[in-house]
Design a protein around this nucleic acid. Sequence first.
DNA 1: TATAGGATAGGCT
DNA 2: GCCTATCCTATAG
Length: 203
Amino acid sequence: MTKKIPIDFYRRDDVVQIALDLIGKDLYTYIEGKICAGTIVETEAYRGPEDRASHAFNNRRTPSNEMMYRAGGKVYMYICYGIHDMLNIVTGAEGCSHAVLIRAIEPHTGIEHMRERRKLYNDDHRLCQGPGSLAKAMGLNKSHNGSDILLSDKIWIEDSGKKFSADEIKASARIGLNFDGPYKMIPWRFYLKGNNYVSRSNL
DNA sequence: TATAGGATAGGCT
DNA sequence: GCCTATCCTATAG
């Protein structure tokens, strides 16, 4: 018996702790009549406004990133490199712009739908490996921006009951950051050690 | 209106 | 492992 994670989980101020706590939770989507789900195995924390890697760095506000300023528990979708949709969960209180990027899940439900969306039939460990692939496999895109992770019937997160000890989860610098400075190397990426569904698992 | 740049993925060496 | 196509968005003029 599983259930959705309560809203207080997302409204905490410590986005790094939330990114860590999301490892092992189950992400579900019900899109185009297809139910898909998997266990979160890789996340990254983005802490606006002081984190240069965050879209909300320096309190930057645009129509695209507006969702980051909502109270925790909203879905923030962002298009990267013009082609890849990425799934973020907004955290913290209203007006605070922290978010967690979901980078990879280990699929366990609706895998045949994921294969179809990805046109990838013989490589299941790559279906949701990396944020762009994950969104595509799960049927997520910019139209899901602003969904409420507790109220939406298209996307939600459940507590799988799985528990991981501190030495089973590894922290590293975040991926793909294109600048120099103290936040480039800060270890705000978390992933399950040895898990085959994690992107770039050696870093 | 034009243009630079970006939280990638996949193909090739 | 390295390289780059690809195209949306923000920003400047």
